[in-house]
Amino acid sequence: MGYASRMTAPVAHNAEAASADPLIRIRGLSTVLNGKTIFDKVDLDIPRGGVTAVMGPSGTGKTTLMRHITGQLAPDAGEVWVDGRNVVTLDRAALFALREKIGYLFQNSALLTDYSVFENVAFPLRQHLRLPEVVLRNLVLTKLQAVGLRGAVDLMPHELSGGMMRRVALARAIVRDPMLIIYDEPFVGLDPIALNQIVKLIRTLSETLGITSILVAHELSAVRRVADHIYLLAGGKIAAYGTPEELERGDTPWTEQFFTGAADGPVPFQYPAPDYAVELGLAEARR
């Protein structure tokens, strides 16, 4: 089976296999940013309950896809169904109601710099629930303990290291036990010990609470341990889909290149650019 046949309808095939009622169902998603096509009629399903990893070369639009799913950015065409509602058509109130059930870990942490670690993690609770101060404190400390930062509870964000910020942001994303958690590169800047703990945490949240997780990450070894399924995005399309084992077999040029890290292959290492030789003024020499 050549990869051409897999490319034609990989999703339809896998979507059926994954689940009859996926949490997220994306159909015909097309997005153009600054004249660059980010998505070209993408279909994608994310099943309930598991950990789905989204991988792909830098700049393919993984973060953009997450922004579509959460309604931060409207696509140029297509439908984005989350928990039975099309976020493209939702009004502000409905969108906010939906977002209350989504935890989102930003790629650059995005802690509120005015507030201490405690207030940052408590922020979603304070805004939406009227909890007694004791209950709130217990909840926040539990989540901070899970990411190993209970001792940092009174620090301000500028007193934290990059890896600590990511863990605080992670605690904030999971503090309301949402139905869906989106981790945009949670492993960046983590030492091996913290990384190991976070991998376990993501797994635990998914297994014990049945939370659906979307994981955007580049660290193959970590993704292999935590993800049930992997989407490989490249060139505005879904290049591959499957379990980690399936993809690692590398039976398509896409997966093979991605997992071995070769510069040459179907995924260009270069951002689209004019011919290198021409731009350096060497066109003559080249001819």
Partner: peptide
């Protein structure tokens, strides 16, 4: 620093 976006994501206007 995406704090505005983070607020929107936490359903705070």
């Amino acid at each position: 620093t995406d704090q505005i976006a983070a607020m929107e994501m936490m359903a705070v206007d």
